[in-house]
Design a protein around this nucleic acid. Structure first.
Lengths: 204, 204
DNA sequence: TCTTTTGCACTGACCAGTCGGTGCAAAAGA
DNA sequence: TCTTTTGCACCGACTGGTCAGTGCAAAAGA
């Protein structure tokens, strides 16, 4: 028997939940380096310090493990952004700055996930995850930009959808590059550069 | 004994060169959809209308085919940007606008390559290609930003390296999203939004 | 007791790379 | 002129290895 594989259910502090966390972390590390298809279940299990059977006992399949990983990461990212959006910032544009900083920090401490997202997100196989990213992450950016339009800080008719994607992609790219090439540069410096880019200080 | 595999040599209009072009195109299409590891050589050969042996005759290995594809694409992108930079724009910031439009257009007509770049570029295996991208593509952005600093259009000390990556990543992300989700939106509109974002019009 | 994890042998599909061979056009004899 | 040779580009059946997923009995929690 023994075929629960009930999919990633409640993520709490039980024994099973802890095993799943370890598997998520191991999978994220390896998939960030090699990609989904090139990463073997044996390798994930070994890195997590777990028997191979445990992976299938918990997730049922390699794909389901990955889907769970995407969900888990997107949920946490969305949480971090939502919290930043609730912060003390005074104007929509100040909230935008806070969002960029939050995203930068999130990817700074959960870096492999950033690379997984970037590399695998556009595959047709994970369209659910893309949708979730759009509704729970990009939507935060878009809302803030719409607020800015409403507050008169941006021209009416400004394409907030495209702009939201643009800012998200910009921060994601920069976060990955910084981790790979300039790990010593403080996140705050990078953030300052991006703020300057997106605000008024370009063009005289 | 028939073992040329001289690697991607001169790309001219001969029979071989044409076969290689077809293989590049097929590989880009398939790898954009499925990723490098998940794409089989059989599938690439079939899509290109060529026997499997021909792939190995021309490139020697799956990896070499992919390396050639990256080089080929990066070279063309660099060419497109360099040409835009030589255009009639009057100020550094106007050149920056022209670069973004050129990048957007390039990925618009060579879309699968954009996704390949985004997905595979950060793997340790293709560090050569990353280096080439940095020195031949990002460098164009960085130079123009440095010109802007020199012309007083940007604050002295502005981090042109980070900003170059940021702009490149922003345009790349938006180009992919547009192709996937809003193929009808004119490239010029997207460009206008990005220009607005990067110029002065955000924040009062 | 019930759930979760372990360890390990096994299977079957799939896939990169190989190798003997084909077609063809242009050069080299004769 | 006719025929033989050479070299290039390509073909596709085949092989050896890899890997997701299975089955199961025994141990470890809780």
């Amino acid at each position: 028997m023994s075929r629960p594989a009930d999919g990633p259910a409640k993520e709490q502090g039980g024994r099973r939940a802890e095993t799943r966390q370890r598997l998520y972390r191991a999978a994220a590390d390896l998939i960030a380096e090699q990609g989904f298809a090139a990463t073997t279940v044996d390798a994930i299990a070994e890195r997590a310090g777990v028997a191979k059977g445990t992976v299938f006992y918990n997730f049922g399949s390699k794909e389901a493990l990955f889907a769970g990983l995407l969900d888990h990461g997107i949920e946490r990212l969305a949480g971090a952004l939502a919290e930043a959006a609730r912060g003390p910032a005074t104007s929509p544009v100040a909230v935008l700055d806070a969002l960029m900083l939050a995203q930068l920090r999130f990817f700074d401490e959960y870096g492999p996930f950033a690379r997984v997202l970037l590399a695998e997100l556009w595959r047709a196989a994970w369209q659910d995850a893309v949708l979730r990213l759009r509704t729970s992450v990009l939507a935060v950016y878009e809302r803030v930009l719409a607020d800015a339009v409403e507050a008169g800080e941006l021209r009416p008719g400004f394409d907030t959808g495209t702009a939201a994607t643009a800012v998200f992609g910009m921060v994601l790219t920069v976060a990955i590059e910084r981790r790979a090439l300039r790990p010593d540069q403080p996140v705050e410096d990078v953030h300052a550069t991006l703020v300057e880019l997106v605000h008024r200080r370009i063009s005289p």
